[in-house]
Design a protein around this nucleic acid. Structure first.
Lengths: 331, 331
DNA sequence: TTGAAAGCGCTAACAG
DNA sequence: CTGTTAGCGCTTTCAA
């Protein structure tokens, strides 16, 4: 490349990096040669001295459409820069997540974004020690990494309050059981479940608290709802901690011969695209994944540029009412 | 690292690569040091001489749950090896896909898997010239890369034949419009649409052929179905080329006041998890994405190991009948 | 069986 | 403003 342009490799490097000390003539010569050869700098070699312009995105999995919103937001921001995001599946267990992070680090990414990680806070701080890190959807405060999160307490409150206002008293909840080493209070599903319980108690409904612990996915929602609907007296509303689980709950209601919302009200969380489909029409909590992804990208690049002080970016969720919730059936 | 073990870097390299010419004693010494230091070789530096043990997976997007099946299958295979897969979003347009591939190549991945790429066959062969490549879901034959695909003609035939057998005559189809430079006949949505037309003609129903050209996603299915349902006479069945579009079609039917399957039958394609939900209960074509992902991983590693002859792996789809299809309403 | 040495393609420090 | 030089952490000859 350098020989084709008849200049030094240094010159090429400087042009590519927009560094000081290059004459316009030189710049042109190099640019021309780059175009003629279709030359692309090898990110891998650049990485040995400086940056790879690569950031790693650790997603638990790619089945939840909410993560697609986050990715889109991140991409929106990154498209204005030289950085590229690579995704890797963190999986459902800590060893797999651990391996995924190692894989990213050994490939010299410039920074990491982890979505709802299972790792302990210790481990996250360990990672943050030598790589810029932004953590999404975890509530702990760390001096070493940035956080992007939604106010899950406010969101859960919106959902439960909505059901209470409709007149429901026997409101049940489906929560998630994971392999995390985080403090429970820092996990979004724990917060959603705790808020549900708090509101029930505040309304004198402590005796009606009913929680099914399964998973934030379709099967989990199905199983959880089956269990809840088998109880006596049967709940008149189910607040599922995630839309994916709510879909399963809708299925279980259907199989139990219950109409929604006539026989059972169902509310979800995340406001994924699917919730908006008319024959799903799921009341849900919107938390703007696009904005969260965008913010995560912005914060990470700031950190890569050298910021050391931690930043916490919070999104305020809103309630989206659809046809899956209504007043309870007359007793 | 080498100094800690009191051996040469060469020795370390050999141990890590299980190369010949290392005594058991040496091997042990190095292993011990590796464990003590928690040492991880830098994939990036390895990449400058040899492999990075990284493969790139180019997905159009991560919103379609079918791609999650493919990824799971791929991961299943890769977990038995030293390779790691990184995903990158190829997007809806060729320039974005092009950029994604460049990003992967400049990071020295050892091989590429592209799912339903938009690039021309020429461009794919160009890529395959210097990187092992496996292409999923495209039908052209190339001497330079491997293909993993489902028999889309057989699949579409299953769906349409099913509707015909139920007694439908006014069967409509929703197809996809993309930014691809491939030969139309090599694209799965073109094949599905062409097969639909062929079957209609073979059954003397050429006059009832009705195709809406939109997109294989929820909004596309909704818009396409709206258009089809506005025609006179109205179709009694819609075969959507993808489950995602079928979901939108179900929504449109709902909005048009049509019950499914009473007023309208709907069939999809891909048999995603959502199709199995009872209140979706979508008749669909299953094509085992898990197996396709597994095969793609296997073929790519073979190619990385040196295979040069092209391989074509085909999956045979099956029909999964659910409650969204039934006999047409009496005229 | 071992290790010294020569790069891989780049960036950063320094000299001209 | 430009080019020379010294590595980055590995793998791969090639001598010892």
């Amino acid at each position: 490349m350098a020989s084709h342009a008849q200049v030094s490799v240094t010159a090429v490097s400087k042009v590519i990096n927009n560094a000081y000390g290059v004459s316009p003539a030189m710049r042109n010569k190099v640019r021309t040669a780059i175009d003629e050869l279709g030359y692309r700098p090898q990110a891998v070699a650049r990485g040995m001295r400086g940056r790879t312009f690569t950031i790693g995105l650790v997603l638990p999995h790619i089945r939840n459409p909410f993560f697609a919103d986050i990715l889109d937001g991140l991409t929106t921001h990154l498209d204005t820069t030289d950085y590229q995001a690579f995704m890797i599946q963190g999986g459902a267990t800590r060893p797999v997540e651990h391996r995924a992070v190692d894989a990213l680090l050994s490939r010299q990414v410039d920074g990491l974004i982890m979505v709802a990680p299972l790792a302990s806070k210790n481990r996250l701080e360990h990672i943050a020690q030598d790589k810029p890190l932004v953590v999404l959807a975890r509530h702990e405060r760390s001096p070493h990494y940035d956080s992007v999160l939604a106010d899950d307490e406010a969101g859960a409150e919106l959902a439960v309050a909505h059901l209470l206002q409709l007149g429901h008293r026997r409101i049940a909840h489906i929560t998630h059981q994971d392999d995390s080493l985080a403090r429970p209070a820092d996990l979004l599903h724990t917060i959603r479940a705790a808020t549900y319980q708090r509101l029930m108690r505040e309304h004198g409904l402590a005796g009606h608290i009913a929680i099914a612990t399964s998973y934030y996915n379709e099967q989990g929602g199905y199983d959880g709802a089956r269990e809840l609907l088998a109880r006596t007296p049967r709940p008149t509303a189910i607040f599922a901690g995630a839309d994916q689980a709510a879909l399963g709950a809708l299925a279980a209601a259907h199989d139990a011969g219950l109409t929604v919302p006539g026989g059972l009200s169902v509310a979800g969380y995340d406001n994924t695209h699917l919730a908006a489909l008319p024959n799903i029409a799921l009341t849900s909590i919107d938390q703007d994944g696009h904005e969260m992804g965008r913010a995560a990208g912005k914060l990470l690049l700031e950190r890569i540029e050298g910021r050391r002080t931690p930043v916490r970016f919070t999104v305020t969720p809103t309630l989206i009412v659809r046809a899956s919730t209504a007043a309870p059936p007359a007793p």
